[in-house]
């Protein structure tokens, strides 16, 4: 019995260590791309509402980053703010407050860009999300999904979005879409095929932000 006691203690400790393994897999990370091109800047208040929703919903330990989609978006400079919330709820609340005020400052001074580099933003988002090592990773794209690349910007290559869920928000119809809806449908189908081919776990479109905001983080809805 005396000999078996240390063995039992070691086994118990090993069990506890294995059980307490990686707590990051229970967290989630969200990267939100906000389209600031052309007339879409007028929708910035809606984007702020979505960010507020995310701030209210994310838990301590989760990560959130908000970046703008510009002419060339594959750069850290486009990240407006990013944060990994503290494990303590009180500290996380303070971080959320600070995040909110930075986003408010951004919305006040936003100005439109000439082009829309969604692919660059996606690559940047995937890079950030993979770094967080969160269990659930989501890219939220607040855009009309009309990609316009400037001269010299190369994005026609396969991208990697393994294990990431993509949610397109407020995909507004353009003037040309109204004339020929197939353009809109084809545009969404193109992006769906592209992100799924890149390894994304799912592709969802949420346009009704008033009633279906929960679908951003909850894939069951």
């Amino acid at each position: 019995m005396k000999k078996s006691l240390p063995v039992l203690i070691i086994l118990f400790a090993a069990f506890l260590l294995s059980a307490c393994g990686d707590s990051r897999k229970h967290t989630q990370a969200v990267y939100m791309l906000v389209d600031t091109s052309g007339t879409y800047t007028k929708q910035i208040n809606k984007a702020a509402r979505v960010i507020n929703y995310l701030l209210a919903t994310l838990n301590p330990g989760d990560s959130l980053a908000v970046a703008k989609v510009e002419t060339r978006s594959f750069t850290e400079k486009d990240i407006i703010d990013k944060v990994t919330f503290d494990r303590r709820p009180s500290e996380a609340t303070q971080q959320k407050r600070a995040f909110k005020s930075r986003i408010e400052a951004f919305t006040r001074g936003v100005h439109g860009s000439a082009y829309t580099d969604i692919t660059g933003g996606l690559i940047q988002a995937a890079e950030y999300l993979n770094e967080t090592r969160a269990g659930k990773k989501t890219i939220v794209i607040f855009s009309d999904m009309q990609e316009e690349l400037g001269k010299g910007t190369v994005r026609d290559f396969p991208i990697k979005l393994n294990g990431i869920r993509i949610v397109a928000l407020n995909v507004s119809k353009l003037g040309t879409d109204n004339a020929d809806p197939r353009l809109y449908i084809d545009r969404l189908a193109h992006w769906k095929a592209r992100v799924l081919k890149a390894g994304a776990t799912s592709w969802e479109v949420v346009n009704d932000l008033d009633n279906n905001m929960e679908a951003i983080l909850d894939p069951r809805r």
Binding site: L16, P60, R88, P89
Partner: peptide, 20 residues
Amino acid sequence: ALPMSEMVGASDYITDNLRT
């Protein structure tokens, strides 16, 4: 349960469904 998360962290899990 809620204030204990302030001490041991809200995002720590012992098993898949069991928070520390």
